[in-house]
Simulated scan of single mutants.
Amino acid sequence: MLAHVDQGSGPPVLLLHGGALDHRLWEPQIPELSRTHRVVAPDLRGHGASETPTAPFRHVDDVAALVRDLDLAPVTVAGISLGATVAVDLALEAPELVAQLVVSGAGAGGAEFRDPATLDLLARWAAAEQARDRARWTETFLELGFGVGRSFDDVAPDVLAHVRRMTDDTLDHHVPDGMPVLPTPVADAAARARELTLPVLAIVGLLDSPDHQRMAREVADRVVEVPGAGHYPNLERPDVVTGALLASLRA
């Protein structure tokens, strides 16, 4: 079973973190949501306290097993970045487990990037990975997370340090000697997502890349825009994101 936090009681909420991070991404939301809901926040495989993958796997299978083992269904699933994609995958592969979705920074299937500035940053990120240049990899990862071309001086120091700490922990514990085993994607997820009928809320940081914003909007029937926030709006504007989550849960 995936390592996870399980806090509070009431209608269940599953919080899925972004790539290279862990459940601590959701620290601003967990205490408030757990006042009225049972909140489960796992570490995906290859992240946090969960095991490092050594063979092909799918995140969606791990998450579905967790939902069943903890008897959470039907559960509201909220995901950021990688977590958003896994949330959509869960609704596609096991719709009986999911009550509604909240996505941020991603949508269905593999990411499709078109914005020239983002493509340039991704090329630099890939080059850093190829060169095993950890410092440069981390800096490009953070730039993508807080807004392409945005100065880190514009990000609250505690928020920047929080994301950097999670990233460092992931690299230290799960990628110590080279390339990790990457998850197998869900087949035809983007095409299949057009047929989703359950409620889907997108929470969009307006400083996130245009492509990340677009991917979240494409799967949603409702959108909450968050000014002054990049790829992790729940960290930069926790009041807005927590409020949007609570409103969606109450609805």
Rank of each mutant, 00 (worst) to 15 (best):
A3P: 02
V5N: 00
V5E: 07
Q7N: 06
S9K: 14
G10I: 11
L14C: 07
L15V: 04
G19L: 15
L25Y: 01
Q29N: 06
R35A: 14
T36N: 06
A41C: 05
H47G: 10
A49E: 07
E51R: 10
A64Y: 05
D71A: 15
T76P: 07
A78W: 03
S81E: 07
V88Q: 08
V88W: 08
V88D: 12
D89I: 08
A91H: 04
E93K: 10
P95T: 14
G105D: 06
G109S: 03
G110Q: 10
A111P: 14
R114G: 09
P116S: 10
L121P: 04
E129S: 15
R136F: 10
W137N: 15
W137Y: 15
T138E: 15
L144P: 05
V148R: 00
G149Y: 03
S151C: 12
D153G: 03
V155L: 05
V155H: 01
V159F: 05
L160M: 11
R165S: 12
D169F: 04
T170F: 15
L171A: 07
P176G: 04
D177C: 08
L182N: 15
L182C: 07
P183E: 15
T184F: 08
D188I: 11
A191G: 15
A193S: 09
L196Q: 03
L196K: 04
V200P: 06
V200Q: 01
L201P: 02
I203H: 00
I203Q: 03
M215R: 12
E218P: 06
E218R: 14
V223G: 01
V223N: 01
E225N: 03
Y232V: 10
N234Y: 04
R237L: 04
D239I: 02
V241N: 00
